[in-house]
């Protein structure tokens, strides 16, 4: 029997993977993918919560949140890739470690 805690556990793992990816990976494309992982972990948690909510409460607006997050994530990637492309044209690299003109 798969329960809410299974889904939440999976969602936590995905989120942790995303955070770890952002911290340790240096390729900017992988950073973008890690961000997606974090957002999708959140989506999974929302859907699981909505599915396992005890009746009578209806939790439909959570589903709307999920769709909004998906749509915005797509827009975010589009902008992220544009920024990345511009960066690549300037420097010929997408390695986050080499972006150190500003002191940090």
């Amino acid at each position: 029997m798969i329960t809410l805690s299974h889904y939440l556990f999976l969602s936590m793992i995905l989120f942790a993977l995303g955070v770890t990816g952002l911290m340790v990976r240096r390729n900017a494309i992988i950073l973008l993918m890690s961000v997606e992982l974090m957002l999708n972990a959140a989506n999974l948690a929302v859907v699981a919560f909505a599915r396992f909510r005890p009746a009578p409460a209806s939790a439909d607006n959570g589903m709307v949140l999920v769709f909004m997050v998906m749509a915005v994530a797509a827009a975010e990637v589009a902008i992220g890739l544009a920024i990345l492309l511009n960066l690549y044209r300037q420097r010929r690299t997408v390695n986050a470690d080499e972006l150190n003109v500003l002191k940090g």
Partner: peptide
């Protein structure tokens, strides 16, 4: 962008749990 998206990830994950 990267740090903003990172923060958005935390925010949405938090929203998921408050919603739950």
């Amino acid at each position: 962008f990267i740090l903003g998206a990172f923060a958005t990830g935390f925010l949405v994950f938090g929203m998921a749990f408050v919603f739950g």
